[in-house]
Amino acid sequence: MPYLLLALGLATLVVTGDLLVRGAVGLSNRMGIPPLVIGLTVVAFGTSAPELVVSLSAAADGAPGLSIGNVVGSNITNILFVLGVPALFFSINCKQTGLRRSATFMVFVSVLLIILSLDRIVSFTDGLLLVSLLAGYLIYNGFEAMRMRKKGQAIEEIVEEIDDAPDDTRKITIYLIIGIIGLPLGGKLTTDSALDIASMMGIAESAVGLSIVALGTSLPEFAAGMAAALRRQSAVAIGNAVGSNIFNILSIVGVTSMIIPLKVEENFLAFDYWVMLLISIGILPLIFLHRNIGKVEGVIMASLYVIYLLIVFEVGHEMFNGSF
């Protein structure tokens, strides 16, 4: 039953999060807000809503391992799984405008998270710093996008565009209500069932956050990556993954720690943080050299993801039994 409830919780997060984004975009369109601003704010935050709700719910329930594990696991999943699996079918090119800058910033915020966690807690002040960096990142990208538009250059949004947002008031209202009510319910259901699964499997809560929950909350990014690859818009796929990783650290860890300070378990500083950092650095040569992520790279990335999950479950079992 906990597995079914977890699946239901994750499905609720994905569906209601999508409805909330579409409703918010529809409302923004009705209010005359430019699409660029919508893309950089409403859609960007909305696609990270499942991770944010789960992290807040877990922190409120006294499960910081699940909260941080969801973010770190999602970032690892976004690179190795969300990019690796589509690359098995379609080559992903790394020539997106501004991708070098965004990928470098992704590495920077990953290093910053490690530094802020060295005292084993991400505090309110740390969260304020992360949220401030997010605001600066959004403002910079907004000005850069407007500058490129004035020059007549093509613009690649840092997040996927929502093309079928509702345009009538009744539908917008329904989408927003379902999203606002459904997201917290999905987050609570996901958190409770994940903790039950951790207890049943005899593994630490952080292991569930790093694996099952992280994979589930990354499904929107995976779906977007597969759809982009099918449409031969592979630049959107990698831009979506990199942008999501930046938002996961700056918005989710930032906002959550400003509300509830997050204790950092030893396993994150000993292993998981470094995996996140190494794979973030690992894709930089492909991006800076404009190399494609092809089938070979896809096999390597997908294989590394499977190996990582096996290690997570093994370490999680040792932590649960107090031998780590």
Results as ranks from 00 to 15, higher is better:
76 I>Q: 07
89 F>G: 15
82 V>I: 14
153 Q>A: 09
148 M>G: 08
110 S>D: 04
155 I>C: 02
57 S>A: 04
116 L>M: 09
85 V>R: 10
91 S>R: 07
98 G>D: 13
80 L>H: 10
81 F>G: 10
119 D>S: 15
94 C>T: 07
112 L>S: 13
125 T>P: 14
136 G>W: 00
78 N>Y: 07
115 I>E: 00
85 V>G: 08
56 L>A: 12
53 V>A: 06
96 Q>E: 08
55 S>R: 02
152 G>F: 09
60 A>L: 08
113 L>W: 00
116 L>I: 02
66 L>H: 02
73 G>D: 13
64 P>F: 04
71 V>S: 03
90 F>W: 13
87 A>L: 11
66 L>K: 04
70 N>S: 14
52 L>A: 12
62 G>N: 05
109 V>Q: 05
70 N>D: 15
138 L>W: 04
66 L>Q: 00
154 A>C: 15
62 G>C: 03
57 S>Y: 07
130 L>P: 01
76 I>E: 08
95 K>V: 11
99 L>Y: 08
132 S>P: 03
134 L>G: 04
108 F>Q: 13
120 R>A: 03
83 L>F: 08
127 G>L: 09
62 G>T: 03
125 T>Q: 06
105 F>I: 09
107 V>P: 03
63 A>T: 14
117 S>L: 06
153 Q>H: 12
134 L>R: 05
81 F>L: 05
99 L>I: 06
154 A>S: 11
76 I>R: 02
51 E>Y: 14
130 L>I: 02
110 S>K: 13
116 L>F: 03
